[in-house]
């Protein structure tokens, strides 16, 4: 009886997936589907939250008031994205506190790219252009993901990300057309951010632990390598427009494939940074832990105030 019930649920679930419809929070779903989504969405949320830090590093030093206002708005958006995504994950039964604890304890991961430091103003441009550019390629694909709340969050996030990418590209444009120092600042930023950005798409398809099942469930719609290729193809042209050189001697156009071919990615470097060996891994986690610890009294006070208020209201009613 029980088994039949489960298989009916599974049948219905498979039907929804096959029909390209969305799984909604109240629908039955396989436990592994749920856990896989929680891992992916919370990791994405953590990336948005930690991602505030490298760019936040330049808000105070933004070179003009217009740039300061734009950067503030952008970083505020990132925090907002974190909020939508935590909410999407909460619909799967995971509490935000638990997700935060997992981030702070180091159990949950966030995008490795944010473990690199922002050294010059050009890094703010490069993050918008490259990192947000890569995020958009990935997220446009995720707008078609099978879980409804995640897909809808992605639609909204993509709109804001395209503004972020434009502001980054515009910074790079101004620097590339600026003084020799500004131009070399832009080139140096591209040199440092290029390869870590390619790593953002994750390991090659054959080596990716979660990819196959995710594709079957239509959580992921395109493979890591497909998305990475799409990003390279569009970004090489943008770099040409900027007059900057992509730091890859093997980069060449393959007219048969109609794609750019690029050199080997240093996966040892990727693993090193994932495992905590990046320049900023400790700083990023310390910053989040400090915010959490120093904010504890604020959160406790809100609870205390609410309890007092309830008591007063009940007292008055009685």
């Amino acid at each position: 009886m029980e088994e039949n019930a489960v298989s009916n649920d599974q049948f219905r679930f498979d039907q929804i997936i096959d029909a390209e419809e969305k799984i909604e929070p109240r629908d039955w779903m396989p436990e592994k589907y749920r856990l896989n989504l929680i891992r992916q969405i919370s990791q994405h949320a953590h990336s948005e939250v930690v991602g505030q830090l490298p760019e936040g590093n330049w808000i105070g030093r933004a070179p003009t008031l217009r740039r300061k206002a734009t950067l503030l708005a952008k970083v505020q958006d990132e925090a907002g994205h974190g909020l939508y995504l935590y909410s999407a994950a909460e619909t799967l039964g995971e509490s935000r506190e638990k997700m935060m604890d997992d981030l702070l304890s180091g159990k949950a991961k966030y995008a490795t790219i944010f473990n690199y430091p922002t050294l010059t103003w050009a890094d703010v441009g490069a993050i918008g252009w490259l990192v947000d550019g890569a995020a958009i390629v990935n997220q446009i694909s995720l707008c078609q993901t099978s879980y409804g709340p995640y897909a809808r969050a992605m639609v909204r996030i993509c709109k804001e990300e395209s503004f972020h990418m434009r502001q980054g590209f515009e910074i790079m444009q101004v620097l590339s057309n600026g003084s020799p120092t500004q131009k070399s600042m832009a080139q140096d930023a591209l040199n440092r951010w290029w390869w870590p950005t390619l790593m953002m798409f994750g390991p090659h398809d054959g080596d990716s632990a979660h990819s196959q099942q995710s594709m079957k469930w239509k959580i992921k719609r395109q493979s890591n390598d497909e998305l990475r290729q799409k990003f390279v193809d569009q970004t090489v042209e943008q770099a040409k427009h900027l007059g900057l050189t992509i730091p890859d001697e093997d980069l060449r156009w393959n007219s048969e494939r109609a794609h750019y071919e690029f050199g080997p990615i240093d996966w040892d470097e990727f693993q090193r940074v994932v495992k905590g060996g990046g320049l900023c891994n400790r700083d990023r986690l310390h910053a989040r832990r400090r915010a959490d610890e120093e904010g504890g009294w604020v959160r406790d006070a809100l609870v205390a105030y609410e309890e007092k208020r309830c008591k007063r209201d009940t007292g008055e009613a009685a």
Binding site: Q52, L53, G56, K68, A69, V75, Q76, A79, G82, A291
Partner: peptide, 28 residues
């Protein structure tokens, strides 16, 4: 704007950045 990414919880990161932005906009 110094609170950006460092406030007691995520909603406050957003609110502080939002208010900071109002002030910078007004300054301009």
């Amino acid at each position: 704007s110094e609170w950006c990414g460092h406030s007691p919880f995520l909603e406050e990161d957003i609110a502080m950045a939002n208010c900071a932005l109002d002030h910078v906009g007004r300054a301009r």
